[in-house]
């Protein structure tokens, strides 16, 4: 049986761990609120851009010669995966669920004989994917939005993706991230960025005739070719914002669980400690009494 001192030490160490996890939980809760506000604030821009793209794409679909960012290269041989994770761990299954889905997708693509290239956002994606797919990783972005996620971060990634696309290094680009549902639920989402799929409702609303017919200045093609790279950055920005909120949500839940588990552990250890203490007292009493009897 462990000594009383060992129990005391054990209880003390669990208590200090519990303090850390509960502090992390509160920090994550504060960051989650900020991340949600940020995601909320970015929505108007994305919505309006989607509306404009919808009507542009609808009017351009009739005429041939849509830009390649919208129409694609006509092939799907080389696939670029943008795997967006966090830089830090201790957030439950957040990172591993993204990486698991990425692996699944890579495997099924490779089975179909496609070439897969990986662009990692966040340190965790790289460390977890390096072992199996070191040669497939083309670039890693780290410390994205370490203090506060800004549009420039997304722009940088978008510029890189765009440059690769212009250079003909891939045909289809998909981003994998966690969509935020609530603090306890995040859904791994694959979204195709290039060629960009205009959301059906936006396109329909534009084509349905309920919308007015726009004049374009300069012409459709020119606006579209200016709008599409911007849209790429906006979509990446949106994914990163969702991811950020998901990360904080996942961390909050994980740390809440850890704090509760630590509490249970302390209760159990305290009970054992008290039992042992009583046993020691009883033993000492028996020794004294039997010693007195022997005299």
């Amino acid at each position: 049986m462990p000594s009383l001192k060992a129990f005391r030490n054990r209880i003390r160490s669990v208590k200090s761990t519990q303090k850390i996890t509960s502090a992390m939980k509160m920090v994550a809760a504060a960051k989650l609120r900020r991340a949600q506000e940020q995601a909320e604030a970015a929505r108007p821009y994305a919505e309006r851009m989607e509306r404009m793209l919808g009507s542009l794409a609808a009017s351009l679909a009739k005429s041939a010669g849509a830009p390649r960012l919208l129409a694609g290269t006509g092939k799907d041989q080389v696939q670029l995966l943008v795997v967006a994770t966090s830089d830090r761990g201790l957030c439950g299954a957040f990172n591993s669920s993204i990486v698991r889905d990425a692996r699944l997708m890579i495997r099924s693509l490779q089975r179909d004989g496609k070439t897969v290239k990986i662009l990692c956002v966040g340190r965790k994606a790289r460390t977890q994917l390096t072992r199996d797919y070191r040669s497939n990783i083309v670039e890693t972005f780290e410390d994205v939005g370490r203090r506060r996620l800004s549009y420039d971060d997304a722009q940088k990634i978008a510029d890189r993706v765009n440059a690769m696309f212009e250079a003909g290094e891939f045909d289809v680009c998909t981003i994998i991230y966690n969509r935020f549902t609530s603090a306890i639920k995040q859904t791994v989402t694959r979204q195709q960025l290039i060629p960009f799929a205009v959301p059906a409702e936006a396109g329909e609303a534009a084509a349905g005739g309920a919308r007015a017919v726009y004049e374009y200045e300069p012409d459709e093609g020119e606006i579209l070719s200016a709008l599409l790279p911007r849209n790429l950055a906006v979509q990446i920005f949106r994914a990163l914002l969702e991811n950020n909120a998901s990360e904080q949500g996942a961390r909050m839940t994980a740390m809440d669980n850890a704090t509760r588990n630590a509490g249970d552990m302390i209760d159990r250890l305290t009970l054992q400690y008290n039992r042992t203490r009583q046993a020691v007292i009883t033993k000492e009493l028996i020794e004294i009494i039997s010693g007195a009897d022997a005299v």
């Binding site: 404009m52 009507s55 542009l56 919308r211 007015a212 017919v213 726009y214 004049e215 374009y216 200045e217 300069p218 020119e222 606006i223 200016a226």
Partner: peptide, 19 residues
């Protein structure tokens, strides 16, 4: 400041998209 010159928008302007 549109790409092809400044334009003023008054109520009832025709629908338009411009850079």
């Amino acid at each position: 400041p549109g790409a092809e010159g400044d334009f003023g928008v008054l109520p009832g302007h025709a629908p338009m998209i411009s850079t």
